[in-house]
Design a protein around this nucleic acid. Sequence first.
RNA 1: GGUCCCGUAGCUCAGCUGGAUAGAGCAACUGCCUUCUAAGCAGUAGGUCACAAGUUCGAAUCUUGUCGGGAUCACCA
Length: 591
Amino acid sequence: MEQIIVDKTVEAIQLLYHHSIDSKLVQLQKTKKEFVGDLTLVVFPFLQISKKSPEQTATEIGNFLVNSVEDVENYNVVKGFLNLTINSNHWFSVLNKISQDSNFGTFSDSGKVFMVEYASPNTNKPLHLGHLRNIFLGYSVANILKANGHTVYKTQVINDRGIHICKSMLAWQKYGNSETPVSTEMKGDHFVGKYYVEFDKAYKKEINELVEKGMDKETAEKEAPIFKEAQIMLQKWESGDENIVSLWKTMNSWVYEGFDVTYKTMGVDFDEIYYESDTYLLGKNYVEQGLKNKIFYQKEDGSIWCSLKDDKMDDKLLLRADGTSVYITQDIGTAIERYKKHPSLNGLIYTVGNEQNHHFKVLFTLLKKMGYNWAEGCYHLSYGMIELPEGKMKSREGTVVDADDLMCSIIQDAKTSTQERGHVENLSETEKENLYKMIGLSGLKYYLLKVDPKKGMVFDPKESIDLNGNTGPFIQYTYARIQSLLEKGKKLNYIAKISTVQSNEKEINLIKLMNEYPSVIKEAGVNYSPAILCNYIFELVKEFNNFYQTIEILREENKSKLEFRLALSENVGKIIKSGMNLMGIEMPLKM
RNA sequence: GGUCCCGUAGCUCAGCUGGAUAGAGCAACUGCCUUCUAAGCAGUAGGUCACAAGUUCGAAUCUUGUCGGGAUCACCA
């Protein structure tokens, strides 16, 4: 429809003012609520061509469109705005098309392939609130890309080696008394995290003791015996020491068991998992190759660098003087590895916090310098940090909001408020538990996804997440109402059916909104932004609630109207569910 | 200091490829359940869109500068 009007407007300008214009000049937008009409054409850009007043130009174009486009029924002019009214038959046929398309909103195979990396946990402690935002965001973006017709590989990188895990290992060796997650009845990741904290306590104590003996703090941090021990452990791990490797495997396996539980509660999954222990040596060869090709340079001490002067950044170290790699060396290696494994990849998306903006800018620049054209397709999906009211989360100060605890408490909140309302008494216990989980998680996920990813956000753990207003449960509630309507309709032997009926404005508004769904999916995909989808669904749901509360549906006397409204509701429900599912949020039949 | 991001109602956020009188939610206040689920709906109140210039018929939106907040520029990961 929009395209037809744009084309016809170009034609109108040609005929009326003998001027051919680019269709990009034609600005067609939704008519604002306070004016009459469906679509609005902004005529200001044509004034120079028409050499007439805005009103007159708009009137002339309006006349032309009404006469030449069948579904343009009427128009009115306000200043330079030409408001067009579209025939309601057109909207009926739109609804009809939506109702017949079981995958409405999703696009057919684009032939493009993307990889989305959306988790990169360390194995020395449990997941926290920051991980939740990261993972929900990446998971949702992966789904949105799929809906856009792309093939998507979801992947995570596990930072399973390094000094951090050695710290946990060492503390466990020293103070663990051979206890295990089973013997202590602790979740594995929390268990290992406990020893990370133990290490830190002991480490701090040693530092203080050294400082008291007169050592300056910086030296003390390097000289503390337990720290040195951890470093020795890391060296042993790197040389393949059997005992250390075996301990490492055991402790990591505890962590993975814990992560699996958390991921399951979160409702996310991965197609591929990369372990840093497998990949941390990759990249060295490529750097050495780059040195030969004179893309990089070597300093006198033997360290290898890349000059980024042309890109207005400081030079970047790629290999230390002793030949060991730094973080970015690994990232170069893994990126190349991924493209080798999936040569058809069109894009590689890293869902990582904005504190690493610079890192990824450097990484992509390096890859381009090394001649990998696919680096153009690499994208850093950067998201803002979550802060507490008192500032950043600090693991050392114990202010980190734990992912498991948070999910547990919001599910508990959902349980309390669901029970207060008492709509679900006749569900079984399992169904109820499921429902509480569904509601609680929708509150959390929606809360984290509705904000533009790149913006930071403040989270107050003392205030429970709201379940009214612009929230996941509000949307679920609307969905449940629709399902209840449909079920009652069925019992009364009505079927959802679209026919040409006398329609009202609210019904047409709903169809217009539904019609936008595919373009919203597209926009959310292009911008990697579930927030765009959230806003759209919220708008749709608000519009539906307004309709629901003011228009009679099952009480309508005219059967065709009643069945039309059922069909309308059913399709609104379909879109709500589809959109929310893309964000990993499930919809209940009752709540 | 260099680079990047952000600043919209008391709070949390939309709107930003320039378009009509800047919108939601929360909190506050007023109505609405003998009628399809009140986790709802309708309404009232709340704004120098950080500030200042510039471009334009038109700026919250684009440019520049100022102020305020954050991130980063590690032989940490």
